[in-house]
Computed example of a mutant assay.
Amino acid sequence: MLHYVYGAVKKSMEAYVTRAESNLVEVPLPFPVNSNDEFVSDFRKALERGKSNGNRVRLAVIDHVTSMSCVVIPIKELIQICRKEGVDQVFVDAAHSIGCTDVDMKEIGADFYTSNLHKWFFYPPSIAS
């Protein structure tokens, strides 16, 4: 997961890996962001750490637009890297992307893509997609 990940998502991931007796790899990403190449390079390094010692990466959690820093993550490229590197599944937390970015689910290619419609469509808070 990216170190920009939303706090509740981070806590969920930490709880999951604790129960699964697994490891969590947090991707430290630069801020301010100078280029997508920095993101991609740091993401690749984190995948290498995750795959060290014969381990495999079972789930990558990637924000589409980060919550606190409002950075648009190059998710299509990161998902392609995950596919090439054998990551089992990719989950995109897109709570802030619906209404802010163009979203083409087929083109993005994530296994899971979830957003909250209350942020930009003024729906009740319980509505998510």
Score class of each variant (00 low, 15 high):
V57R: 13
F91A: 02
E14G: 01
V103S: 00
T66V: 12
W120E: 06
K10G: 03
M13G: 00
W120R: 13
Y16T: 01
V25Y: 08
S35G: 08
F43T: 04
V33N: 02
A46P: 11
M105Y: 12
A46C: 09
V27N: 04
S41H: 12
K11W: 01
M13H: 00
W120T: 14
L59A: 06
R83F: 08
E85K: 13
F112S: 03
F31S: 09
A60T: 06
T114Q: 08
V92W: 09
R19K: 05
S97L: 06
M13P: 00
N36K: 05
M13T: 02
Y6A: 10
H96C: 05
V33H: 01
P32K: 13
M1T: 08
V40Y: 07
I62F: 12
Y4L: 08
V87F: 13
Q80L: 07
K51A: 15
Q89F: 07
N55A: 14
S115M: 05
K119A: 07
E77G: 02
V40K: 11
E38M: 10
L59F: 10
K119N: 07
D37Q: 09
K119D: 01
H96T: 00
I81R: 08
Y6C: 02
H64C: 10
N23M: 13
V25S: 05
L2V: 06
I98H: 15
N55T: 04
M1A: 13
A20F: 03
G7M: 00
L47F: 09
A94N: 03
I73L: 14
V71R: 12
G86I: 13
D93W: 04
G99I: 01
F122H: 09
V92S: 06
A46N: 13
L47C: 11
G86K: 15
C82L: 05
L47R: 10
A110Y: 06
P30A: 15
P28Y: 11
Y123K: 14
D102M: 00
P28G: 06
A60Q: 07
G99N: 03
F91Q: 03
L29Y: 06
D88Y: 04
R44L: 10
V61Q: 04
V71E: 12
A15Q: 02
P28D: 13
N23F: 15
M13K: 00
K76G: 03
L29S: 02
R56Y: 08
D37S: 09
V9N: 10
R58G: 03
V92H: 04
G50E: 11
H96K: 11
L24C: 01
C100T: 09
I81P: 03
S115N: 04
Q89L: 10
T18G: 00
I127M: 13
L2T: 12
C70Q: 15
D88E: 15
F112T: 03
T18H: 07
P125W: 05
L24M: 07
V72F: 04
T101V: 10
M68A: 06
R19H: 02
R19G: 01
M105W: 04
E14T: 00
H96G: 04
L2E: 11
V72Y: 05
V40R: 10
L24F: 01
G99E: 01
I62G: 05
Y123L: 14
